[in-house]
Amino acid sequence: MESDPETLTVVAEQVAVEAAELVLDAYESMLAGERVAVDTKSSETDVVTAVDTASERLVRERLAQRRPGDAVLGEEEGTDGESQRSASGVTWVVDPIDGTVNFLYGLPWFAVSVAAQIDGVSVAGAVVEPVSGRRWTATRGRGAWLDGRALRVSEPASLDVALLATGFAYSSERRERQARFAASILGRVRDLRRQGSAALDLCAVGAGWIDAYAEHGLSRWDWAAGALVASEAGAVVTLPGEAPELGDDAITAAAPSIAAPLREALRECGAGEV
């Protein structure tokens, strides 16, 4: 099997599109009144649906057919293929529905996220929105695209006119700390957005729809594909562990023109204590 990033990007997109079709069918059935089985994970607000599970299983099946030597890390079923990882060097990181709460409430801002990583670094990724059909893709060193159109980040003149997106944890205690942080940073930027899908927020940075994004507490499947889209579109991205002054689990993505002042503002507003 070839493991060059362009080949992996094609596989990521094809598999994500197929899973998105499954999710869309379920979403439309739910809107028509069909019940969806729901369970919880870390808290009462951290939900998983039967559709999440079905989507991930479909992705795993398709990857097993196309890339039988690869490992898979998925949100719902953990990791498999560890013994084979050294054979191919590739691990697929899968979020079967990023934005499950939005999905459950009927809000159309959610996506299937599939990324290929080598040595923990994303080299290919696809984020596909079931409702709109939009396809976000990226290949390390070769760019990022929305439905085949090359992406480029925005160029805000200063931090005070920048639109910042963020998100909140499932733990009520941590949400309270995040709310205090959000209230502090709000005075430094144009406005805040909280849309409920980390993958799509990162893609939106890449498209210039928002100028920056910062969040704590994400898992690898939340950002593996979206962060690559943002980075390949020109954003300055810091992954968990790369900016300890902002917190060990902080992730940021920003247009280059505001990346440095944003990082300083996040620090001054207490991001490291969130």
Rank of each mutant, 00 (worst) to 15 (best):
V17K: 14
L24W: 07
L24M: 09
A26I: 02
A26G: 03
E28H: 04
L31F: 01
R35N: 10
T40L: 05
A50L: 06
T53R: 04
S55L: 08
E56Q: 07
R57F: 04
V59S: 05
R60F: 03
R62V: 01
Q65M: 11
G69E: 12
D70P: 07
V72W: 05
E76F: 05
E76A: 05
G81K: 04
S88A: 15
W92Q: 02
F103K: 15
F103Y: 15
L107G: 04
P108H: 15
P108Y: 15
W109I: 15
V112R: 15
V112E: 14
A115W: 11
V128K: 11
G133D: 05
R134A: 14
T137W: 02
R140F: 08
A144S: 06
A150C: 08
V161I: 15
A162C: 07
A165I: 05
G167S: 12
A169M: 08
A169V: 09
Y170E: 05
R174Y: 09
R175I: 12
E176G: 08
A179V: 13
S184A: 15
R190E: 14
R190N: 12
R194K: 03
H216M: 08
W221H: 10
D222R: 02
A224W: 05
A224N: 02
A235Q: 05
A235C: 06
E242Y: 12
D248I: 11
A250D: 00
T252P: 09
A255V: 07
E268H: 04
